[in-house]
């Protein structure tokens, strides 16, 4: 996926838009695949809707309509691109004097400032699971869309590690951490701001869907093949 300018215009954008790979998953893997897909799609929803992201959302909306109606109560209309972009900027990027829905986790977890201690811990966790932000991306790692993309990646790592010696233990813990201690605080915190200040329904529904989905993830992780039982940190439980 790309983010105009702030996020790199590179390889995989088209992937979001057009190339859903029809890859039959093994039955016991299907939960993981669905989970991964839901995270990836959520990442797309909360990314700045430049042309490629916008088309990605539009073209996959039908595919994810079950997800959106199950968690968000309905499938939102996708407004014209310019309106959606204006809505995104007005809610998540800059507004007059403030940002109604700050998408950075540390802002909500720490004390209303960016790059607090929780941001450092996130970067540490990312590094320990073998990831870092693409250095050309001029964003902070704890932006909601990056967190969701990271969660999707971790789901894949955990599911793919079934039977391995480490059992994806590290990745599973990271997944619990990033959903429970990062994504959840952000989405819980910004939903009221989105409800209050949104001028269109799109992000209201998307945010509600994400919040409900994230609230359920604790129950969902247990059924992922390869998800170790001891992955639960005290806090996540």
């Amino acid at each position: 996926m790309i983010h105009h300018n702030r996020l790199p215009v590179n390889n995989c954008m088209g992937d979001w838009g057009q190339n859903i790979v029809e890859r039959p998953a093994a039955p016991d893997q299907s939960h993981a695949v669905v989970l991964e897909n839901c995270f990836f799609f959520s990442a797309l929803l909360f990314r700045y809707p430049d042309d490629a992201v916008y088309h990605g959302i539009r073209e996959n909306l039908q595919t994810f309509s079950d997800f959106l109606s199950a968690y968000g109560g309905q499938v939102p209309q996708v407004p014209p691109s310019e309106d959606l972009q204006a809505e995104y900027v007005g809610l998540f990027v800059n507004n007059k004097g403030f940002v109604p829905a700050v998408p950075y986790a540390a802002y909500h977890i720490d004390d209303g400032r960016l790059m607090g201690d929780s941001y450092d811990r996130l970067r540490q966790t990312m590094a320990e699971t073998g990831f870092q932000l693409d250095p050309s991306v001029k964003e902070l790692e704890d932006h909601l869309t990056i967190l969701l993309e990271y969660a999707a990646t971790l789901v894949r790592s955990v599911a793919g590690s079934e039977g391995a010696d480490t059992g994806g233990h590290f990745e599973a813990r990271a997944l619990v951490e990033v959903t429970g201690n990062y994504i959840q605080p952000v989405i819980e915190a910004i939903l009221p701001g989105i409800d209050q200040y949104a001028t269109l329904d799109f992000y209201r529904i998307a945010a509600r869907a994400l919040r409900e989905f994230i609230r359920d993830t604790a129950g969902i992780y247990e059924i992922i093949p390869g998800f170790p039982e001891n992955a639960w940190s005290k806090k996540a439980e």
Binding site: H3, L7, C12, D15, E36, N37, F41, I146
Partner: peptide, 12 residues
Amino acid sequence: LAGMMFSPGLST
């Protein structure tokens, strides 16, 4: 959703 996957490309 169970029958497909987003391509594994990561961008950020």
